[in-house]
Design a protein around this nucleic acid. Structure first.
Length: 416
RNA sequence: GGCGGCGUAGCCAAGUGGUUAAGGCAGGGGUCUGCAAAACCCCCAUUCGCCGGUUCGAAUCCGGCCGCCGCCUCCA
C-alpha cells in the first residue's frame, strides 16, 4: 500500500511515475535494497516478510468482524474504528481520548463520530490506482490494520514481541491494539520493544533537513560491522546519535576486540595439545554468565559488550605470557567469542576478511615483508622502516611479533 | 499545553537505594620493541543537567525547573 504523503499523493505512485516503473517494481526495488543493507549489517532475514497488498482479503475480514461486533461504523464507503467503544484505548501510550482533542491542530474529518476515531477502510476514487473491491465499495485498507492482520496471521494472538520505533507508539501501535483486542477479545502483544530515535550530530535525521544518512553511503566510510558495533554499544531505548567522532571511536574499539580474537585464532594451528587451565575455565564461565545476565536484562547490549572487553583483557594477558597456551585453551577462548561475539551479537566474523584485491596482493606483501626482514637483520633500519611506512600509507599495517611479522588491513570491511 | 524517552568524564556509554560510578575512544606515565605497532601495568568523574525534599545512606525515590528528541496530523 502506498499511502499518502503530506501532499496527498500516494507515496508509491509518485515514485513509480518518477522512475517510470510499475508500483510493484518500486516496492520490490526498495525491499531488495533494504535487505542488502540488513545483510551487510549481519541482520538475519525474517522467515516471512509479508506484504500488505498481499493480504487485502484478511484485512477486509478483520474490518467485517469489527463492524459485526459494533466497534466500527461505515460512512460513505469508509469504515472507522469507534474509539469510544474501546475504553482501553490509550493504555500503551498513556493518553486519554479527552486530552487528545486539545492538541488537535487539524480540522476533524466530518465523517468521523469522534476526531480520535481512525480509519479501518478508506473509500478510493477511481484515480487512486492502489484500490480493491470490498463490501463497502472500492477502497484501500486503513493505516494500521495491515499490522494487526499480518502479525497475528503468522504469529498468533497474543504473540510475544512487537518491535518498532518510539515514534510509532501513538497512534500506530495504539490502534493496532484496539483493532486486534476488540476483534478477538484477547491480548494482542505480550512485550513491546520501542527503540529510541536516531539523530545526526545532535539533530534529528530528516530528508528535508538534508542530513539523512543512508546506510549504503555510511558503509563507504565505516565497515557495516563497525556500524553494528556502534549501535550495539548503546541501549536500544537510548537516543542514538551518529557522529564521526562516535563512529571512529567504535571503529577503534571493534578493532581492539578483533585484534585479540585474531591473535587467538592465528595461534591455534601451531599450538600444542594440552589441558585448559582452571583460571581460563573459570574466566570463560564467569564472563559468559555475566554476558547472558546483561542480555537477559532487556537486551543490555552495551553492558554485554563491556563484558566482552573485560574478557579480552584477560585473554590478552594470557597471550602475553611466556608459556604458550594449549590448543584446547585457545579453542575454548575462541569458542566463547564465537558464541557471544558471533552467534549472539554478530560483530565478530566467523572468518576475518582478507580483502584481497587481486591475486598479486598477498604474495607482494609477503615479498616486502621478507625484504624488510633482511634489512632488519642487516640493521638497515631506515630501509626497513621505509617499507613499513609506505605499506601503512597503502593501508597495510605490519606488526613484528616473536612469531614473525604479521600484516593486516587498516579499517577492514570498508569499501574503498 | 498534554503524553513518552533521554540528559553520567574531553567524546561515546552502562549503572536506577548501600563497599573504590562498568566498558570503549581520546589523553598522560611506564613495560615490551632497533624504532614502531599490538598488548600489558598505572593515572584520568569525591561526582552523575539544575534546585529543593525523603532516607542512616540517592546518579538511583519524590517535587519543581532547564535542555535535547519523539508523538499528540490520513507517514506506518
Amino acid at each position: 500500500m502506498g499511502h499518502l504523503l503530506d501532499t496527498g499523493e500516494d507515496r508509491v505512485l509518485k515514485r513509480a511515475k518518477l522512475e517510470r516503473l510499475e508500483p510493484m517494481e518500486i516496492v520490490e526495488k526498495y525491499t531488495r535494497s533494504y535487505f542488502e543493507d540488513m545483510d551487510a549489517l549481519n541482520v538475519q532475514r525474517p522467515d516471512i516478510s509479508p506484504r500488505a497488498s498481499g493480504h487485502i482479503p484478511e484485512q477486509i475480514e478483520l474490518v467485517k468482524i469489527l463492524l459485526e461486533k459494533g466497534y466500527a461504523y461505515e460512512v460513505n464507503g469508509s469504515v472507522y474504528f469507534e474509539v469510544a467503544k474501546f475504553p482501553e484505548y490509550g493504555k500503551l501510550s498513556g493518553r486519554r481520548v479527552e486530552e487528545l482533542l486539545k492538541g488537535v491542530r487539524i480540522e476533524p474529518n466530518p465523517e468521523k463520530k469522534h476526531p480520535a476515531d481512525f480509519a479501518l477502510w478508506k473509500r478510493a476514487e477511481p484515480e487512486h490506482i492502489m484500490r480493491w473491491p470490498s463490501p463497502w465499495g472500492w477502497g484501500y485498507p486503513g493505516w494500521h490494520i495491515e499490522c494487526s492482520v499480518m502479525s497475528t496471521k503468522y504469529l498468533g494472538q497474543p504473540f510475544d514481541i512487537h518491535g518498532g520505533g518510539m515514534d510509532n507508539i501513538f497512534p500506530h501501535h495504539e490502534c493496532e491494539i484496539a483493532q486486534s483486542e476488540a476483534a478477538y477479545g484477547v491480548q494482542f502483544v505480550r512485550y513491546w520493544m520501542h527503540n529510541n530515535m536516531v539523530t545526526v550530530e545532535g539533530t534529528k535525521m530528516s530528508k528535508s533537513l538534508g542530513n539523512a544518512i543512508y546506510l549504503k553511503d555510511l558503509f563507504k566510510r565505516y565497515a557495516p560491522l563497525t556500524v553494528r558495533f556502534f549501535i550495539l554499544n548503546s541501549h536500544y531505548r537510548s537516543p542514538l546519535d551518529f557522529s564521526d567522532e562516535a563512529l571512529s571511536a567504535a571503529e577503534k574499539g571493534l578493532e581492539r576486540l578483533w585484534n585479540t580474537v585474531r591473535e587467538v585464532r592465528d595461534r591455534i594451528p601451531f599450538a600444542e595439545t594440552g589441558p585448559v587451565p582452571d583460571e581460563v575455565k573459570e574466566a570463560i564461565e564467569k564472563h559468559k554468565a555475566d554476558f547472558l545476565t546483561a542480555m537477559d536484562d532487556d537486551f543490555n547490549t552495551a553492558q554485554a559488550l563491556g563484558v566482552l572487553f573485560d574478557f579480552s583483557k584477560s585473554v590478552n594477558t594470557w597471550l602475553a605470557r611466556e608459556e604458550a597456551l594449549s590448543k584446547e585453551t585457545l579453542m575454548a577462548i575462541d569458542g566463547l567469542y564465537r558464541e557471544l561475539g558471533n552467534a549472539i551479537l554478530g560483530i565478530i566474523p566467523d572468518e576475518f576478511p582478507q580483502e584481497v584485491r587481486g591475486e598479486l596482493e598477498v604474495p607482494l606483501i609477503q615479498l616486502l615483508i621478507e625484504l624488510r626482514q633482511e634489512f632488519r637483520q642487516a640493521k638497515e633500519w631506515d630501509k626497513a622502516d621505509r617499507i613499513r611506512e609506505r605499506l601503512q600509507e597503502l593501508g597495510i599495517i605490519l606488526e613484528d611479533t616473536p612469531q614473525g611479522t604479521r600484516w593486516r588491513r587498516v579499517r577492514q570491511g570498508v569499501k574503498a
